[in-house]
Amino acid sequence: MGIDRREFIRIAGLSTLLGLGGKGAFELLRPGQVEASMAAKPAAEGVVRWAMVVNMRKMDDDTAKKCAAACHRVHNVPNFAQPKDPKDALPPDIVNRYEVKWIWPEHFHNAFPGEEHPHMPEQMKNLPFLLLCNHCDNPPCVRVCPTKATFRREDGIVNMDMHRCIGCRFCMAGCPFGARSFNWKDPRPYITDTYPGYPTREIGMVEKCTFCAERLAQNMMPACVEASSGALVFGDLNDERSQVRATLKRYFSIRRKVHLGTNPQVYYIV
């Protein structure tokens, strides 16, 4: 769920004081507006534009695993290969089909199809390129969504209101990066330990990486970035002194499928 629970409780609580009642406030504010109101306040003047740099020079299998595990833990992303109750076990092809993933590793030729060639460094071919939602500047997922359940915030985060999503999956067809997951099955029996700080989901709605909007609102770095030992860099692209800007200035970087015009905001240093 895109709404930060604490923020929601705070707003709902405030409006109860004003005599509106929690539910009334929810309807009044409309989920979308609740979301929009929680855009992280810029540290400096001007607009924030969040972006991520994946530094493949510092990436290895172990780090990639840690990043994905960190994200999936604090966001209650189910692991269909690991049911809580062994009787819910699923065959591997089904696990692949139902899989929900916010961030996951792929080899170069899958992350950047068509860009590989036989003479590139062997080691590069096998590096774990971490893939996640690119929080595109021109996001087709937002364009196609018939309910504005997927929307773009001022700070560039493409977020979701899972209470509004009707599960039509138009956005999954629209995203050219495979960044979106649908809840084909009830995820709860496949979350080994539920993280209390984030809601679990139900069947029938779409979800994806939120750039940790809920953590940014509390001035925390995204969970994957914290777990990355410096391989992931996150920050404000509009701030000249930010670490993302410094890193992008220093090293040459590539992005996924730029020719499609979505303007991805996850950069890869190779």
Partner: peptide, 19 residues
């Protein structure tokens, strides 16, 4: 085909001409 047919009215509640 809808994942959440119970919310189908959202299409009319939040009309989105770009979709």
């Amino acid at each position: 085909d809808m994942g959440r047919p119970d919310r189908v009215m959202n299409v009319f509640k939040y009309p989105t001409p770009n979709s």
